[in-house]
Computed example of a mutant assay.
Amino acid sequence: MRWNTPLAEDHADLLLERLALTADTSLVDLGCGWGELMLRAVAKTYNRAVGVDSDPAALDRARRAARERGLADRVEFVEEKAESFRGTADRAICIGAAHTLGGTRNMLTALADVVPSGRVLIGDGCWPAPPTPGALDLFGNEFLSLPDLVTTANATGWRVLHLSTASQLEWDDFESRHRAGQQEWLMANQDDPRAGEVREWIDSRERVYLTAYRGVLGFAYLVLGR
């Protein structure tokens, strides 16, 4: 997987452009995972950045990528829960990590402390239209409607500088990539004792996507300023 979110290359370039990074702006990525988007931001503008995540395996991958791209002297990856971060920066990224900060509203409030004046890029699940019962059973009250997401951003002191949502193609590509490694392994290891369990996991994940939330759950990207 390129990154753990439904996002195409050209869409990512647009979001980084709207974030208005320069060589002088500091950047933090909360819940960075393996830091792919942050590394691209640094490579584009040659600024400095800190990635924060609690997954040591993802951070190991991030550090290897930074070394391979000659960016290790400009980035730092910290093993820490996003909610524990107490630093400040000119810019922040927080994509798919609202749950680690206590939900969408708490995330937006916390980001105001991290970026007292500047811009943030957030990515969060949302309901573009009223969700189906199956989607609600799966995700509960975790996500807001798209209008409520914007209203909450405004209520916590942010102005929306850019808003876009993941396309169906981005969602399908993301979900396919998520299962791609297991699919390749299964086709090459049909007689392995673990094949049945792997096949069941793949088929179950695929069925849930197609029947419960494909075309129902949205994912919004907002560049916010204050």
Results as ranks from 00 to 15, higher is better:
Gly140Gln: 05
Arg159His: 15
Val115Asn: 05
Trp127Ser: 03
Arg207Glu: 09
Val52Trp: 09
Ser164Asn: 11
Asp60Arg: 15
Gly51Ile: 01
Gly218Thr: 01
Ala166Gln: 10
Ser117Asp: 15
His162Met: 05
Gly35His: 04
Leu21Tyr: 06
Thr22Asp: 04
Leu30Pro: 02
Glu76Lys: 15
Phe174Lys: 12
Tyr209Ser: 01
Phe77Tyr: 15
Asp148Cys: 09
Leu15Tyr: 12
Arg207Phe: 01
Glu200His: 15
Cys32Asn: 08
Arg177Asp: 08
Ala82Trp: 04
Arg177Lys: 10
Thr5Ile: 13
Glu200Leu: 12
Ala135Trp: 02
Pro116Asn: 05
Met1Gln: 09
Val160Leu: 12
Gly157Ile: 11
Ile95Met: 14
Asn154Tyr: 08
Tyr46Ser: 13
Asn189Pro: 09
Cys126Tyr: 08
Asp73Trp: 15
Arg194Ala: 10
Ala135Pro: 02
Thr152Glu: 03
Glu9Tyr: 12
Leu71Thr: 09
Gly35Lys: 05
Tyr209Lys: 00
Val114Asn: 12
Ser204Glu: 13
Leu144Ala: 03
Ser176Pro: 02
Gly35Thr: 05
Leu108Cys: 08
Arg179Ala: 01
Gly35Ala: 12
Gly123Met: 07
Arg40Leu: 00
Arg69Ser: 14
Pro130Cys: 04
Arg48Asp: 08
Thr165Asp: 00
Gly51Val: 03
Ser84Gly: 07
Cys126Ser: 08
Arg64Pro: 00
Arg63Met: 09
Glu197Thr: 13
Arg64Ser: 12
Tyr209Gln: 00
Gly51His: 05
